[in-house]
């Protein structure tokens, strides 16, 4: 089931503002769509979380030290 267009747009915009790759937004949208379809078991949520986590990039601060 599609998400509210405003919600989907806000996710893409927030991900972009956070300097994260588009994949993060795509994976979050996929997760929300799954929840919207009523498929929110603990295992499924854990898998979606894993996917999102994998896509998130952490800025390496050691180079700046």
């Amino acid at each position: 089931m599609p998400l509210d267009p405003a919600l989907e747009a806000a996710l893409h915009s927030s991900v972009n503002a956070a300097g994260q790759p588009k994949t993060v937004a795509q994976r979050l949208v996929a997760w929300l769509k799954s929840l919207s379809d009523g498929e929110g078991s603990e295992d499924q949520n854990a898998r979606f979380y894993e996917n999102v986590l994998e896509a998130v990039k952490v800025k390496d601060t050691t180079d700046e030290d």
């Binding site: 405003a6 919600l7 747009a9 915009s13 991900v15 998130v56």
Partner: peptide
């Protein structure tokens, strides 16, 4: 990473809510 995800979700909720 958790902080980043939570910040994105918070910001997305704010933006979406304002727009809606």
């Amino acid at each position: 990473k958790t902080d980043i995800i939570e910040a994105i979700l918070k910001q997305a909720a704010r933006l979406a809510r304002d727009e809606i």
